[in-house]
Structures are given as structure tokens and as C-alpha cells.
Design a protein around this nucleic acid. Structure first.
Length: 559
RNA sequence: GCCGCGUUGGUCAAUCGGUUAAGACGCCUCCCUUUCACGGAGGAAUGAGGGGUUCGAUUCCCCUACGCGGUACCA
């Protein structure tokens, strides 16, 4: 019986969480859930100088928005805490293992100052070797416990001279491991430098911390972005020296998400330049004050965001593109993750969102849409937000309530059962939601709802009278006056088909082609040439409001 | 420079030696619709180059080119 799967996402709190980061989380999460394992959040705040206040909270909030909640982390604890490396330092493990490495002869003390390092790089830099490495040859020329005589090393140590601990890499050693995505990957130690393991301030570098903490947290599978591949041999060696390669987690390096134009890793700058979000949620750097927009604020549904990210580098081979989180968990496998990077395409991203808006009932996102109306100065009458039959017993649709844990159980999953549970928990739409459902085919981003449905709640902001005026005449004016009278004597508007039939009969009686009348009616009710079928709108507006708008426009046309 | 990883239409991509090389986004045409969408039908568009291996290569191997990543007391 193999160990329980445990994976981790280990960001450094230096800024907003971007696309690539969320996708790394997602693949970790999917793998963990797929195998009934744990997903851990660990904060790699080993670099004091780059620490950004608020970044950790932002990361946690972003994961929450995406529905990718860790099982253990700094915000919720767990049996393997603490979950911040700055706090794990107190455990004394980094120091202990660094010294153990020195004792084993696999690491050494180095006393070089930053200036000396810089001088070394300048001195040995050449066209052939633009970035000289602190390695087995150059270290002989530097100040460290390998080049200095032991007495001098002892003296420097005793005097409290600042030092770092570097790994000692001997040349021509082959290091290889199996990457779950790329297969066998081989390196020669010749090209790798003597990486710093423990910094002068006593904090570990990523290289030491990742190995010590993955070990301490019983991580079974270590997944990260492709940019880490080149330093993998250092981590393999550390595992070999410290805990044994047999205890080492399985590795996988995910492909990069590339900028849409040209080449290279997608960055925040690309988003600014090309006009799309790169971060999960809005983020303002507390130091520079520089803002960045998020997918959430742009009007993406978390379901769509997760869906589009999953497909950026993975697919299930069937051609299916729309997946719920639950389906993703059910289908995900590492061997179908691509090796090559994928360019981000915002048009396709929007398509995913559009699909999700159509797929979901407005009940499932009306709470995200309502504030947008308020922000646009459109008031939704409280009555429209009242739910017929009262609020449901389960207030939140369990799409992101980790359905797998309490609904479908361990894999394989009963997706059909899950869907039915979600359906049963979905309440009856209120009037606001009914209206959203009526126009959702036309909405790609959440803010589109304001433009598409605003007229239901207030007189159209603009009236496209130019669409009516050229062909307007007394006969039409007369027709609508008569139409108002007919509506007045009739009952409340309930059946769009009956309404349409009545309208067409009247048109025939007046000797006017219905097509001549339909557009004016639309303009009267909507204000422009868009929206659902006119009579659906009239029914939704109600008799009184429909009459009011026709009369109002008639007045405008006379003026 | 060196090391590593990649390379199927504009983009995301299927194919695990034999296919007319799927599908999706975007684009174009048409249908539906007396609005805008949705939906439906169709179209243009792809294996970086060169060597092998094989009866047969997009698929396996090698070389080249190109791209990316790394080469910090950053992660």
C-alpha cells in the first residue's frame, strides 16, 4: 500500500497570484483530489527583502475565489505546521541540515562578501563565459572553508564573520530523475554551480527549504513550473545526501504559460499592454501603488477561470472543453499534461466565460452580478431579489464546497449523483435572476449584464430614436395609440405568444406590415436594437410599464 | 557561452507507425431570426529543415535551425 498522496503549492509572497501560479495550484489540487490526497499551502517567505505585506492574504483569498482550498496552510493550520518558512526557521531544521551537509563534506562555509562575488564575476567574465559560476574551479580562488586553511576558517567563524553555506558539487557526476511529464531527465553536475543553501541572515534559500520542508511535510509529489527544472539536480542531490533518494517525492515540471504575441513567459506587463488581466483578482502593489486588474473584477466566473486554466496545457483527449471542477478531478492525469508551453489567448478565455454564463443558472452568479448594477447606478427593487418560496435550505450552491469530500466520496466519482445534488440544491430564480437568464446568451463578461438588462429596471438610458424616425408616420402613431388602449383594457401580460398574435392582428387591421412596427416597439421598450424577443420583454416589464414606455416614446417622437 | 526543456493551422490542440491530419477559439459565407445574440450548415488555414530506421513516418533515432527556461545570499 502506497503512502497517502500529499502535494503542495509553495508561493513566495512577493505579489499577486498570476495565471501560471493559479494553474500550478489547479494541477496540484486536481492531482491531490484525484488520488484522495492532501493539498498543502506553504508560504516561502525566505527572502526578507522581497516580502510584500498582504500578498499572503491575497493568495489565500484568490485560492478561495477559485474554489481551490488547501487542506493545510498558514490560514488553517494542520499537523505539519508551521506553514510559513520564516516560522519554520525556528524549528532549527534548516540550520541543522545545512551543518550536517558541511560535516558530511557535501557543503562548505563561504565568507565572500557580495562585493567580492561581484568582483569575481567581473574578473572572469568573457564572451565565452558571460556568467562565471561559483563552482569547483572558481571556489579555489574564493574565501571559503575549502580554499582557506582550517585554522583560518575557525578563526573567521569564531570572529562572527558573516558566511553562507554552499553545496559542494563535484564535476562530471550524472544526476538523473524521472519527471512525470517529461520522462527521464539527465544532468551533469559540471554545469551547475555551488548554490547557496543557507544565507548569511540564517534563512535558507529555496533549494534547501524546498527539500527540508517537502521532507518534513511528507510531500509525495512535488510539482512546480518548468523554470525550476535546471535546479532540480541540486534538489535531487540534497535528497540523496539528507534523506535518501528513496524517500524523495515524485517530480513534475509544468509547461510555462506564454505571452499571446511573440515569445516568452506571460507577465503582468503583457496584460497591461494587451488589455487583459493576468492576476486572479485585483492587486495593488503596496510599495509602488501600481494596480493590476484581476479576472474576477473583469467579470470572469471562477468556474470559467478554472476551466480555461485547466485546458491551457492539458486535455482529456476526447475533445471536451467545458468541465466542472468535479469533472476535472475525475479526468485529470499528469501524463496528458503537455511538455511545451502554451500561449495565452484572451479571446478563447472569454469564450470559456461565455459558455459558463450560458451553462449556469443565473441563480448561481446573481450575487456577483447585482453589485455591478448598483455600481452603474441602477437600483434593483428589493421585490425583484426576493426568492419565491423563500431561501433554500442550502444557501450556497455546492459547486465549490468541495463536493467530492462529502457528496461523491473517494474516486471513482459518481458525477451524475453529484449533478443531481447540485440541481436539487439550486433554488427557484427570483425576478432579477429570471431577467439575467433571459439575456445571458448575449453576455460574455459579467459586466455585460448591465448593458443587456439595465433597461428592465429603469427607462432606457439612451433612446435610439434615429432608428425609428425616418420611417415614422401618422399611421404608426395612430397604431401605437390604439395599441396602448388595447393593452389597457386587457389583463396583465403573461403570454408572449398571445401578445404577439394580438399585435400582428392589429397590424393587419391597420394595414401595416408587422415588421414596420416591431422595431419601433423594441426601441420603445429597450431603447436600442438589441435584446430578447420583444414580447418576452413586454411580459417581463408588465402591462403598466409597457404602456408607460410606449406612451413616453410616442411623446418623444412628437417633440 | 554553457546546461536543460520544447517545436502539428494565427491560437489551444487530437493522433500513442498506416487517418481525406480530429475538435475548439478567432476569421469568412450561408441558414434561423422583421433586433442583438444563441443555435445550425459550410469555408480558408497545420506537421520547422535535413538525414536515417521501416513496406510505410506527424508519430521512433540523429543532426541543424528556431524558441523558451536556467546560469543570484530571488523564488
Amino acid at each position: 500500500m502506497s503512502k497517502k498522496v500529499r502535494v503542495r503549492f509553495a508561493p513566495s509572497p512577493t505579489g499577486g497570484l498570476h495565471l501560471g501560479g493559479v494553474r500550478t495550484v489547479l494541477y496540484n489540487y486536481l492531482f491531490a483530489r484525484r488520488h484522495g490526497g492532501d493539498f498543502i499551502l506553504r508560504i516561502e517567505d525566505t527572502d526578507q527583502g522581497r516580502y510584500v505585506p498582504g500578498a499572503e492574504e491575497y493568495i489565500i483569498d484568490s485560492l478561495k475565489w477559485c474554489g481551490l482550498e488547501p487542506d493545510e496552510g498558514p490560514h488553517k493550520g494542520g499537523p505539519h505546521g508551521p506553514y510559513r518558512q520564516s516560522e519554520r526557521k525556528a524549528l532549527g531544521l534548516y540550520d541543522k541540515y545545512a551543518r550536517q551537509l558541511v560535516d558530511q563534506g557535501h557543503a562548505y562555509y563561504a565568507f565572500d562578501t557580495p562585493e567580492e562575488l561581484e568582483a569575481m564575476r567581473e574578473k572572469y567574465k568573457s564572451a565565452d563565459n558571460p556568467s562565471p559560476q561559483y563552482n569547483h574551479t572558481l571556489r579555489k580562488k574564493m574565501r571559503n572553508s575549502l580554499s582557506l586553511d582550517p585554522a583560518e576558517t575557525q578563526r573567521l567563524l569564531a570572529a562572527g564573520t558573516p558566511y553562507v553555506i554552499r553545496i559542494r558539487l563535484e564535476p562530471d557526476q550524472e544526476v538523473h530523475f524521472t519527471d512525470m511529464i517529461r520522462g527521464e531527465v539527465r544532468f551533469s553536475t559540471t554545469g551547475v554551480d555551488d548554490k547557496v543553501l543557507l544565507k548569511a541572515d540564517g534563512m535558507p534559500t529555496y533549494h534547501l527549504a524546498v527539500v527540508v520542508d517537502d521532507h518534513g511535510m511528507n510531500i509525495t509529489h512535488a510539482f512546480r513550473g518548468e523554470e525550476w527544472l535546471p535546479s532540480a539536480p541540486v534538489h535531487i542531490l540534497l535528497w540523496r545526501y539528507l534523506f535518501g533518494e528513496d524517500k524523495m517525492p515524485h517530480w513534475a515540471h509544468f509547461p510555462l504559460i506564454l505571452k499571446p504575441d511573440g515569445n516568452g513567459k506571460l507577465s503582468k506587463r503583457d496584460g497591461d499592454r494587451l488589455g487583459f488581466p493576468v492576476f486572479a483578482m485585483n492587486w495593488t502593489d503596496p510599495r509602488s501603488g501600481e494596480p493590476a486588474t484581476g479576472f474576477r473584477e473583469t467579470g470572469f466566473l471562477p468556474q470559467a477561470f478554472v476551466n480555461l486554466l485547466a485546458l491551457l496545457g492539458w486535455n482529456d483527449g476526447t475533445g471536451q472543453e467545458i468541465f466542472t471542477l468535479t469533472e476535472l478531478v475525475d479526468r485529470f492525469s499528469l501524463d496528458r499534461v503537455h511538455k511545451g508551453g502554451a500561449k495565452f489567448d484572451f479571446e478563447k478565455a472569454k469564450w470559456f466565460n461565455h459558455e459558463w454564463i450560458k451553462k449556469l443558472s443565473a441563480v448561481e452568479y446573481s450575487d456577483q452580478v447585482a453589485p455591478l448594477f448598483a455600481a452603474a447606478g441602477i437600483t434593483i427593487p428589493p421585490a425583484d431579489l426576493e426568492r419565491p418560496g423563500g431561501e433554500p435550505e442550502v444557501p450556497i450552491i455546492p459547486i465549490f464546497a468541495d463536493p467530492l469530500a462529502d457528496i461523491t466520496g473517494p474516486p471513482p466519482f459518481d458525477l451524475a449523483a453529484y449533478e443531481s445534488v447540485v440541481r436539487a440544491a439550486t433554488p427557484v430564480p427570483n425576478r432579477f435572476e429570471t431577467i439575467l437568464d433571459l439575456v445571458k446568451d448575449r453576455c460574455t463578461l459579467l459586466p455585460d449584464f448591465v448593458g443587456q438588462a439595465g433597461f428592465f429596471f429603469q427607462l432606457p438610458a439612451t433612446m435610439d430614436l434615429d432608428a425609428v424616425r425616418p420611417k415614422w408616420n401618422a399611421a404608426k402613431d395612430l397604431f401605437f395609440a390604439e395599441y396602448i388602449r388595447q393593452l389597457q383594457v386587457g389583463g396583465e401580460l403573461t403570454d408572449p405568444h398571445a401578445l404577439e398574435a394580438q399585435f400582428k392582428e392589429m397590424a393587419a387591421a391597420a394595414g401595416i406590415k408587422p415588421g414596420e412596427l416591431l422595431m419601433p416597439l423594441r426601441i420603445m421598450l429597450v431603447g436600442g436594437k438589441f435584446g430578447p424577443h420583444v414580447f418576452d420583454i413586454a411580459v417581463m416589464l408588465g402591462k403598466e410599464e409597457t404602456i408607460r414606455r410606449i406612451g413616453h416614446t410616442l411623446g418623444l417622437l412628437k417633440a
